[in-house]
Design a protein around this nucleic acid. Sequence first.
DNA 1: AATTTACCACCTAGGTGAGAACCT
DNA 2: AGGTTCTCACCTAGGTGGTAAATT
Lengths: 489, 489
Amino acid sequence: MALSSRAHAFSVEALVGKPSKRKIEDCKEEKRTNDALEQEEENVPSATIEADKLGKRSKLDSLIRKSPGVEKSGSENDIQVGLQGSDLWKRFHEIGTEMIITKAGRRMFPSVRVKAKELDPFKQYYIAMDIVPVDSKRYRYVYHSSQWMVAGNTDHSCITPRLYIHPDSPCSGETWMRQVISFDRVKLTNNEMDDNGHIILQSMHKYTPRVHVILHDPRFDLSQIQSLPAEGVTTFSFRETEFTTVTAYQNQQITKLKIDRNPFAKGFRDPGRNRGVLDGILDTYPWRTPLSFDFKPFGLETQGGSSSSPSSCGTLSPLNGQLSPSCSPPSFLLSRSSFGLPCSDSLGLPLCYKMCSPMSMIRTRPFSLPGHDRLQGSGSPGLPALTDFPFLSSLGISALRSGKGGDCRGHCLQGPPGSPHQPHLHRVHTSGNVGLPPSPLQHIPAPLPSPYNLYGYNLPVTSRLARHFKLAENSLASSSRDEQFAQAP
Amino acid sequence: MALSSRAHAFSVEALVGKPSKRKIEDCKEEKRTNDALEQEEENVPSATIEADKLGKRSKLDSLIRKSPGVEKSGSENDIQVGLQGSDLWKRFHEIGTEMIITKAGRRMFPSVRVKAKELDPFKQYYIAMDIVPVDSKRYRYVYHSSQWMVAGNTDHSCITPRLYIHPDSPCSGETWMRQVISFDRVKLTNNEMDDNGHIILQSMHKYTPRVHVILHDPRFDLSQIQSLPAEGVTTFSFRETEFTTVTAYQNQQITKLKIDRNPFAKGFRDPGRNRGVLDGILDTYPWRTPLSFDFKPFGLETQGGSSSSPSSCGTLSPLNGQLSPSCSPPSFLLSRSSFGLPCSDSLGLPLCYKMCSPMSMIRTRPFSLPGHDRLQGSGSPGLPALTDFPFLSSLGISALRSGKGGDCRGHCLQGPPGSPHQPHLHRVHTSGNVGLPPSPLQHIPAPLPSPYNLYGYNLPVTSRLARHFKLAENSLASSSRDEQFAQAP
DNA sequence: AATTTACCACCTAGGTGAGAACCT
DNA sequence: AGGTTCTCACCTAGGTGGTAAATT
């Protein structure tokens, strides 16, 4: 093991136990987290759902539901988003997830990958991600106690998170639902002047990613998009994806888990560790803990397969209470007056647009640079973010390209400073063991994990091995999954 | 030099001279090619333009032209598309371009990269590429004469070329025009059963790529796209991009040039060759011949820069004559009754849709796998092609994903067998020194080539070197270009 | 003293033509 | 004998955490 000497000095013994003691947080936040964890360990969906009901009601009511199976009772919005790879996320969360941020931008590991259900197959949607502060605290890691301590306060209210629009947006509901929606290529940076379209975060702070499903109404002329109010936004977040930003890993257990699970860190793995042959294979496929499977009621869709498993899609009873309002971050939603006028970056490479005015819009077609976290994103590299706003030129604002050229998919929007708190927004948190019965297949033993349910990257599966796994997976159908689903209230 | 022994046995002496004797072709084809070459050597635009006037007239007439500057006189369609890297293409063309095709799919080198002008900035366009046969001949390479000879006939009429829709489609005219539109990630295959969305070609045949600019009318509802007639299609082709398909290189000069210019073949370069330091640098940036610059009247746009050089945009007088009709390939245009109903691939991975009925349509939003040749495509890897047709499910046809997952951008459509010849189509070939005055900047010496005008790939430019080049480029503005422009009649 | 930065070796992922083996 | 397929070494391109130096 090659671990930082700093972490090594204090946290060696912590490597033995798996779920380390939870970090110190203010009570409300702590409670919220523990609630979520309990749910997750019961293998039930856990997601914080924020929905712009105003827009949703007017738009989604008009959806022609053609999806077979479950018909929701009395809810005008069935949209469900499930976290993929929640097992791995939970492993990190139990320790206290840390994410490296660098000036040049660093990918997340794990990355956010979701599956969507109950979208209208015939409607177009944008799917986007942002990362919002969990609280207004600055943290520091105390090595001798292996804990994160509050180290001060930060005012996030003047910073609006950049929005990363999935490069496949807009896309039909049918297509979104058929795929794993991967945000692999999102990069985090601590450079406030970043012009690469990366998500800008402050180090030593707690954040949580959010996923937004945005209905795109095609009736509006795309060239007049600046006057189109954004409607039909449903927002999801998953407690286990919360993390603390760092510029160097603090907790040695996090380092170890990252090295173990991130294929790109394979060079740091200890070859002398006692692992069997199967262990080695499974490390290559870090999708789940070796020989540990959990079975969710949501339908499995293999990456290459058809959506042939309509499996019982449980529903969540919506809880309309505000979730720990004093702790919830200054969130903004992609709703009316959230999308705004993008600003040209002063550096001449405005790959990430900031919302400079509360002007609502839905982009016609994203033009992105990083471009590579498509649906079920492969591990291929990409480059940041340029947004295509047809109305830019009419405002004398030009979107310029990165000198590094290349890809143009994936990009960030950023809200105006001072506007993160939208008064008309509310946050709905679904919790508890509600409406999601375990799959009838959940007790079927799975001999091997499916290579198609793997984490994030294209894996070095030899054709022979791939065939083997493919067969195993097909026979298992919907039994081998690792996801958490949530449904909009 | 590591060249194939086969080629080495016969073609060594040919390495000395640069422009080898032209291959043997039937007269009409040969004339056409020579015409084009003469134009190119005069640094004037050379492109074959095929335009669906029927659609174009009705649609483009309604464009509100907001683009500043040149207003075309009496032409209802100003669209111009210029080939990037035409110098390199010409180098290959002089020898007789060969493209490797493999079962798994092989990229083109050079790849097709274009710039578009005079699009409506506020309209949405699809930009697509296909590759059509130049003739119905099968060729074989005669080593002792270093020539391609006709070796038989082939009936291409039952094969409709797959259409590769640029992964950034649809995109606003403004955005398209701001970028180099790169088809880097197109792959060629000889596997007729290909399910990866690659372009299927026959070995030992001559082909030419075509670029299509397709106006997307946003007034049509995207979910009803199957009933939307495709209109406003303008097609461009460049004579110097013609090539012969091979499974192994035949002409040693081609091998040499590929190795010299393709960064991925650097491992085969001869380190002992006599080249100066500058030569070495320039080989890394194969955009143009070292220390040889040509200056075109079209505006330079650096990859990272703004479109700040409005330079005189000449126009081409359209020639409405049919171009060597007996030789022209069974081409199909993306016009009415060209787009059709995509078919699910029998292999379960229908990443490339074939047009099975003469039903016209424009896709809402491409869903692609290879996904990586964005505007000014980077060298990042990607995966083939899945198309998102919202109406698929209503027809009981499902688009499935590749097991390799990952990217979904870039994809092919294929026309129905037997329908490649559209009776209402005509082909317009612009030729000669028409309407394109040389740039006033064309005699400004360029000390170094711009790293932003490079061929295809993201280049290993160190930050120091990049800064150097960037400065040089900025001072040169529109003087350092390598493109051929054409305008739709 | 805490945190950040720059650089590095070592990975993943995939694009080259060479050359041997294979096919027809 | 011509043409194709497969594997390979050698590249490009870029994602890891370690490490030491720099910064605050």
